[in-house]
């Protein structure tokens, strides 16, 4: 199984390389520094979101409210700072957005942990709640003047490369994504809490009996996802130099698609940071390269839909075949006696 999982990551990586070659050959612009920086820039926010979605999916849940949380955190933080502390440093914006995101995530956690409700339906509900509340109580107009520290942050560059026309910039926020990815990897693979998330997704009853505090894990998961969404939203707003309350919501599918493509299973217990990042890369490249190969951008949603269907369909067919060969779903693995101790 371990080998199979790894091979799934290899498969995604191979697909990415293949896609790059196809796009690169049909349009050499693809391999320019400018384009690669663009792709990386597009991956910054999605990568952060994907880390949150990964944790939820590993725990056996699904979260469709994280985009609403992100835009809620972004917009209300910007409004708050503009009104009371326009001179605030940019890190304060992130602290506030993170805190708001965390708070909203805890609302998700409350309904999921307290009432033991299905995560899809809860987060559908909170998505509507959060977004609706944002629009009717906080504001529904685009804010174009961000606090100066955020505007400055949006202009920051990590690497600058002189191009034929203008310069190509790589934004330092990519570090942010990288750091978060490493932290999530450490969390998931080297802490008991992370193992608890895998345990919860693998066998909930057993996790409970083993002494994991399921509710606490769920609060942690959805709180963390909220926090990451808050950060993601803030970066999104900074990079675009505006806070639009209608932004981000609607893109949740892209992120879920990326994580599922990266090998996470909606039934829970499976999924890795590397896989999810590869999934993000694949979705970003597919989305951003359509124009390069001459496909109008209106096809984007169609492509995302197809990626999801192919990415989930192929493993589903394989599993189904295997099951029919071994006889039904219920008889379980039949490899008896292999490692059983010698009798008598």
């Amino acid at each position: 199984m371990n080998r199979l999982l790894r091979s799934n990551e290899v498969l995604v990586a191979v697909t990415i390389v293949g896609l790059c070659l196809i796009v690169g050959i049909s349009n050499p612009v693809f391999f320019t520094v400018g384009n690669i920086f663009d792709l990386m820039r597009s991956s910054i926010v999605m990568g952060i979101f994907a880390m949150g979605v990964l944790i939820v999916i590993v725990s056996g849940g699904i979260d469709v409210s994280f985009t609403a949380i992100a835009v809620f955190a972004l917009y209300s933080t910007v409004r708050l700072l503009n009104a009371y502390a326009p001179e605030a440093p940019f890190w304060l914006a992130f602290v506030i957005a993170g805190a708001i995101g965390f708070g909203l995530g805890m609302i998700n956690a409350f309904f999921i942990a307290r009432f033991n409700l299905p995560t899809l339906i809860v987060t559908l509900g909170t998505m509507s709640m959060f977004h609706g509340f944002l629009l009717f109580a906080i504001g529904n107009t685009i804010v174009r003047d961000l606090p100066p520290s955020l505007t400055a942050f949006s202009r920051a560059t990590l690497v600058q490369v002189q191009m034929e026309r203008g310069v190509a910039n790589l934004h330092p926020a990519i570090f942010f994504t990288a750091v978060i990815a490493v932290l999530v990897w450490l969390l998931m693979d080297f802490t008991m809490l992370g193992r608890g998330v895998y345990a919860l997704g693998g066998a909930r009853d057993a996790a409970e009996r083993a002494g994991f505090n399921i509710r606490r894990i769920q609060y942690f998961i959805y709180g963390l996802v909220g926090l990451l969404s808050g950060f993601g939203g803030m970066i999104y707003g900074s990079l675009n130099r505006q806070a639009n309350p209608q932004d981000i919501v609607g893109s949740e599918l892209n992120v879920i698609a990326a994580v599922v493509l990266g090998g996470a299973s909606l039934t829970g217990g499976r999924g890795t940071v590397i896989g999810s990042l590869l999934g993000v890369a694949l979705v970003v490249i597919a989305n951003n390269s359509l124009i390069l190969i001459g496909v109008p951008s209106v096809w984007q949603r169609v492509v995302i839909g197809l990626i999801i269907l192919v990415g989930t369909g192929v493993p589903a067919i394989q599993e189904r075949r295997a099951r029919r060969r071994t006889g039904g779903s219920a008889s379980g693995p039949t490899q008896p006696l292999q490692a059983a101790p010698a009798a008598d």
Binding site: R195, A203, G211, G269
Partner: peptide
């Protein structure tokens, strides 16, 4: 009857997990 095991985790982790949890460890 269901053995309270985690199908998605390795044999080693299944055996050691409870013990590590009971010891109140935070890191693996």
């Amino acid at each position: 009857q269901d053995f309270s095991l985690f199908p998605n985790l390795t044999v080693a982790e299944n055996i050691a997990l409870n013990e590590q949890l009971a010891e109140g460890r935070r890191l693996v």
